[in-house]
């Protein structure tokens, strides 16, 4: 019986032809072939380490932001007036007051945006996936791509030019909603499209084969099957526009008062409340208010996410 070492290396007296080329390197190759599982294990460990490292790297800024915002803003959220009051008659260096006006304003404005953008976005996606063929569909798809690349400040300027300058509407929460609609539509279209494409063609055919007209099939089978995915997409869209500030700077000047009328001039929102105190961070009262508003905004997005996930969960395809 030969030993392990002998069997691996070229034995003495063997003709050069059978010697592995490359001397030592050749031996390594042979060893690797003897131990493929060991090589795989090493690769596996390396890949895991790299993956974890990348993951940790990606988490650092997230954790950093969250801890900063929570640490600096959380005590504002503990006071009752924060949830009930507004900032009326409160100067930059005054403590106190609340964010209710801005919370309501943000929800109202984003609600209006969602109300307009979601039907348009979903119907566009349905057209593109279920009906669109040829030139028109390609043109629409291309325009959605362009729309998704438009900087938010340009969307704001565009609405300003059209709605305020041309049609003489006031700067208002609604004007800002319109700009946000432009930002939200492409997100909804693209995500809904993906979800509709995931619905297997067999289900459409099963429905047609029962003598169900196409539009009923689209509404009751395709959209129903994709529903929970579409909700997730809508949430992405809401999250995308909720913290958007640039269009608000142009279209919805901040007010410290309650303002529930979307069509009536200055409008309070959380991003604009943050922006308001941004210049006075040296003042403890202003800094406190700003971090409080920032944390509130994050919580709002989080809350909507949770609600959406719950809705999606109860409408998910059951197994």
């Amino acid at each position: 019986m030969s030993t392990v070492t002998e069997s691996r290396g070229p034995a003495d007296g063997v003709t050069p032809d059978t010697t592995p080329p490359g001397g030592k390197g050749g031996r390594d190759v042979l060893r690797e072939m003897d131990n493929p599982h060991r090589v795989r294990a090493v690769k596996d460990v390396v890949a895991k380490v790299v993956m974890w490292f990348a993951f940790a790297l990606a988490m650092i800024p997230l954790v950093w932001i969250l801890t900063t915002v929570v640490a600096k803003g959380v005590h504002m959220l503990g006071s009752a007036t924060w949830w009930t009051g507004n900032q009326r008659n409160i100067n930059s260096d005054d403590f106190g007051g609340g964010a209710r006006h801005a919370i309501e304003g943000t929800l109202e404005m984003v609600g209006m945006t969602t109300l307009i953008a979601v039907p348009i976005g979903i119907m566009t996606a349905v057209y593109l996936v279920e009906y669109g063929r040829g030139g028109l569909a390609r043109a629409i798809s291309f325009m959605v791509d362009i729309l998704s690349g438009i900087p938010s400040i340009v969307a704001g300027l565009f609405i300003y030019a059209v709605v305020v300058t041309t049609f003489g509407l006031r700067q208002s929460g609604f004007a800002a909603s319109l700009a946000l609609v432009l930002l939200m539509i492409p997100v909804i279209v693209r995500s809904t499209e993906e979800m509709l494409k995931l619905v297997p063609n067999e289900l459409r055919e099963a429905s047609y084969a029962l003598g169900v007209p196409k539009w009923v099939t689209v509404v009751k089978v395709v959209l129903r099957t994709a529903f929970s995915g579409i909700i997730t997409g809508v949430l992405l869209g809401v999250a995308r526009v909720m913290g958007e500030t640039a269009p608000l700077l142009i279209l919805a000047p901040y007010t410290k008062n309650f303002q529930r009328d979307l069509f009536n001039g200055n409008f309070p929102t959380l991003p604009m409340m943050i922006n308001q105190d941004r210049g006075d961070l040296a003042l403890p009262a202003a800094a406190e208010r700003m971090w409080g508003a920032a944390l509130t905004l994050i919580l709002l997005v989080l809350l909507l996410n949770v609600i959406g996930r719950v809705v999606a969960h109860f409408n998910a395809v059951k197994k």
């Binding site: 297997p200 067999e202 099963a206 084969a209 395809v317 059951k318």
Partner: peptide
Amino acid sequence: VGMVFQRPNPFPT
């Protein structure tokens, strides 16, 4: 004229 397909395709929802 009804149809049954090769792979069973009940509506999943």
